[in-house]
Design a protein around this nucleic acid. Structure first.
Lengths: 143, 143
DNA sequence: GATGAAAATTAGACAGAGTCCAATTCCTAC
DNA sequence: GTAGGAATTGGACTCTGTCTAATTTTCATC
């Protein structure tokens, strides 16, 4: 848990703390993700941010999401072959992915125990581990 | 272990056993994947199959890979946001993904123990679990 | 407040993966 | 060999994401 209230002021502080210059567009994009605490695609972020008036270009949305990821403010979730999701939850956690609806649900990692993973090959260092349980509605044979 | 020799004849049998009509193109695509036992993208399959003479169209490569996946002859591996990999290894296993080189390595699942996973939400059934360890070369701060 | 340089944003062209569709070719059973 | 269903094809198309050159914003300094 980071901040209980995702006001623009608090978000600007959060951006600064992550070494990100808090511009208007960046704050709005952060607000879209953090106030919802949801997994959003670039598309969805774009739609939310430009809901009222067109404020932010496609290039800025992509630039900003990549910047957030580099600065470890959000996490990329790669489960859908056609688009990347951005996840504002940086606590260790895993995902359940509904293949039918595209819905993505968190699994808290603190209760999950994983053992017996092999030694990593030399010269590389782990950056993270993703666990995804793919589910589909009962008695559904598609795709 | 399925077949030690991935001859065209054996592959045709394998296709039939999975309810797939073994056409020339399908056998060649299966051969590309199984004889190499490698993780290949649609692009790479396309290149291999058309190496000598142009034999197979892009549409057929995509159709066939999707058919193979539906018939559970190969597995889809979603780790790279820009392309899907197809994996002829259907034994339970996980992956190490090198973010720098794009290289994908298998982890045998039999030694890995995962406990404490939560109950699935009602009405859905698990189709599989993917575990991916993302690694990058030591002292490398990129991306 | 004016000024100028660096940082951020923009529109739109572009690239690459994957899908779609109507037309053709290939098999198989007769 | 013929009819008919299955498979394949080229090419247009869509969609996500990147790139670029031009413009706007920001901000420190005067």
């Amino acid at each position: 848990m980071n901040k209980l209230q995702y006001t623009r002021e608090n978000l600007a502080d959060t951006l600064r703390r992550h070494g990100i210059n808090p511009t208007h567009q960046r704050i709005e994009i952060a607000h879209a993700l953090f106030s919802r605490q949801a997994h959003l695609s670039a598309d969805q972020v774009m739609a939310i941010v430009n809901e009222k008036h067109s404020e932010t270009s496609k290039a800025t949305v992509y630039n900003t999401l990549n910047l957030f990821r580099q600065k470890k403010l959000v996490r990329e979730v790669i489960v859908d072959p056609s688009k990347v999701f951005y996840d504002p939850n940086m606590e260790p956690h895993y995902h359940i992915y509904n293949l039918e609806s595209g819905e993505l649900t968190d699994i808290d990692a603190s209760s999950v125990r994983i053992s017996g993973l092999p030694q990593l090959p030399g010269g590389v260092v782990a950056e993270g581990m993703d666990v995804v349980i793919r589910v589909r509605p009962e008695s559904d044979n598609n795709s």
